[in-house]
Design a protein around this nucleic acid. Structure first.
Lengths: 361, 361
DNA sequence: ATGAAAGCGCTAACAA
DNA sequence: TTGTTAGCGCTTTCAT
């Protein structure tokens, strides 16, 4: 169907290599340049990326693996990443693994099989298992949002620890001392970091963190709802709650709604991530927000850089030491950590005379 | 890096063609079959889809173009579609065009250039311009959610007219007569259909639709908020409002929130699409829901079928009549229309003694 | 059922 | 600078 460089060669009377070289930024006599350009226009020529890929062993495709497409936080990131990568000539293949390690592995295999040049992933399960083939073949991987130590690669994260600490400190400053937390699945990086921030804030204020005030919500809406119920049941004295991701925030609000709890009079709430939801909530929710576009930009930038670094080298150095750091995977791994923000709503009640001051001791 | 069929041939002592044929479902002597399988296992062979694509002119890739990735409705559809297509060996390349016709055209060009085998699209702008190349080259297109008549192709839609009619009828049955509607951009298919349903419901009940009660919200959160404000300002007598997509529902709720309007006492509301949001809202929102998974399944099914039909034929019949129906594009186009559902919340007030009955005349 | 050979559209030596 | 040539890994006649 479409024209090939052969057609261009024929049309211009030039050789194949000349056309190819021109197409790849080589120098051609001005006269010929014009001729080639003309032929390209008239024949409506477009480089066949498939053929090029076969020859160069580069597909100009990037794989993206995320836990859930239907999740604003992830969606915002990948839409931005896709945009940037596409503008650099890279196509992206996005795989939603529904927070399932098995599906994640399948997606990784699929993408590897499809010979993507690189990978952006928010790891759900054990990274080693699904990603070692990429590492072995020298294809760059960028982890975002979550970090897994089994694989050494570039990471773009946010300061989860600081974000949680800041949020909880705000509650403390408002006079709260019995502060609940709804957290994610325990094996996830962000869960640990956010929990750490929560605890640090309490400890810094001289409050002893209590396990009964921390409930797992699994980063899902249903989990958030269930966690909220449990927190409320088990802790009648709880005056505030910090919900550590968006889905659980929605779930918690649903439950608060169902239980007829009034925010912030009976319970102060700090949620996570989705500005629109926070604004639509009654009352407006105070939330931690993450810089999604920046995450995407940083991830795309570092990936493109790696791709560029590698573009000279021949693909897939046999690599005698698959996952050993010896090969030079870990020497200069980039860990980028971005700052979160806090958006004030009306969901935090200022306790007038904190029991903490007078009654506690 | 990875093994090729050459390696397999060498290892088994068989010819290239035999391996290839076996790989494509051909018959081989049992003895050889075993040998081949063994070699595949041991050499870790995987077909190089790129090489295959070059030869067959089929990339096993599907392009998906959507207005917004960051939109639950779309996200739910594509995540399901991606899953199905992948399980059939097709990779998907998703492009978010941010509801911008120019970006949409760029995305279509990009995907065409990447030689995707087929396309799923929720058209934003003029389809003719961006899709004619696909049609010319005989690549199947499936439109979902929206239909554009410039291009004849398979469509998977929902019964928007019926959905809107049903929603408005519920308000009417609850005694409302001054019912506002927040609608989408006027050139969009779903906008027209939903508006039609709204009007039909009113007319059937003997109520004359008034333009002042219909405000454009552009299918965005901000638009929904602005529309809500305008509706409220211009129509102090309005007792109910039907918001015709999810984003605008969020926006409208934000505004209702800001204006301190109590739902459903002062205003009854019917929203759209997002079950979780509806449940998290105070009070629970009554909404129209669309069968996203089913849309995805139908779209994938019809696309796969077209792909299959075409798989015998050689690619890109020169097609003397690019967009003419003569070539047989329009002969058996499938239009699939799915039913929506309604989820009851607590956002509709039953008017005890509708002013309509006594006071109106 | 199997093998030999040609070629998909491109790039990359190497010569000229 | 430009042209010639040899593949990249696969499928596909066409023989055998």
């Amino acid at each position: 169907m479409s024209a090939t460089i052969k057609d261009i060669a024929k049309r211009t009377g030039l050789g194949l290599a000349t056309i190819s070289s021109y197409l790849n930024g080589g120098n051609v006599r001005e006269k010929n340049r014009v001729k080639i350009e003309e032929a390209i226009k008239e024949l409506n020529f477009e480089v066949n990326e498939v053929a090029r890929g076969l020859k160069t062993n580069r597909t100009k495709m990037i794989g993206i693996i995320i836990p859930e497409m239907n999740n604003t936080f992830f969606a915002e990131i990948i839409t931005e990443a896709e945009d940037i990568l596409r503008s650099h000539g890279y196509a992206t293949m996005i795989c939603d693994c529904r927070s399932d390690a098995k599906r994640e592995k399948e997606a990784a295999d699929f993408l590897f099989h499809r010979r993507v040049d690189g990978l952006i992933i928010m790891p759900t399960g054990p990274a080693r298992i699904s990603l070692e083939r990429f590492v072995e073949s020298g294809r760059p991987i960028v982890m975002i949002d979550r970090k897994r130590d089994e694989i050494s690669c570039d990471c773009v994260l946010v300061d989860n620890d600081g974000a949680a600490r800041d949020a909880v400190e705000r509650l403390i400053h408002a006079g709260h001392r019995k502060i609940g937390m709804i957290e994610g699945p325990e094996d996830v990086y962000t869960t640990k970091e956010r929990r750490r921030g929560y605890k640090t804030a309490l400890e810094n204020a001289g409050i002893i963190p209590e396990e009964r005030l921390i409930v797992k919500g699994n980063y899902t809406i249903a989990g958030g709802a269930a966690a909220m119920r449990k927190l409320r049941n088990d802790n009648p004295d709880m005056t505030a709650v910090f919900v550590s991701n968006y889905e659980m925030t929605v779930g918690a609000m649903m439950e608060i709604n169902d239980l007829g709890i009034s925010v912030p009079e009976e319970l102060s709430v700090i949620g996570f991530d989705n500005i629109d939801f926070a604004k639509a909530a009654v009352p407006r929710l105070s939330i931690v927000t993450q810089p999604t576009k920046e995450i995407a930009r940083e991830a795309a930038a570092v990936l493109l850089q790696r791709l560029d670094e590698r573009s000279g080298k021949t693909l897939s150095v046999p690599s005698a030491h698959p996952l050993d750091s010896s090969s030079g995977n870990s020497h200069n791994v980039k860990i980028i950590k971005l700052k979160t923000k806090f958006m004030e709503g009306r969901s935090i009640k200022k306790l007038e005379d904190p029991a903490a001051e007078s009654g506690e001791k």
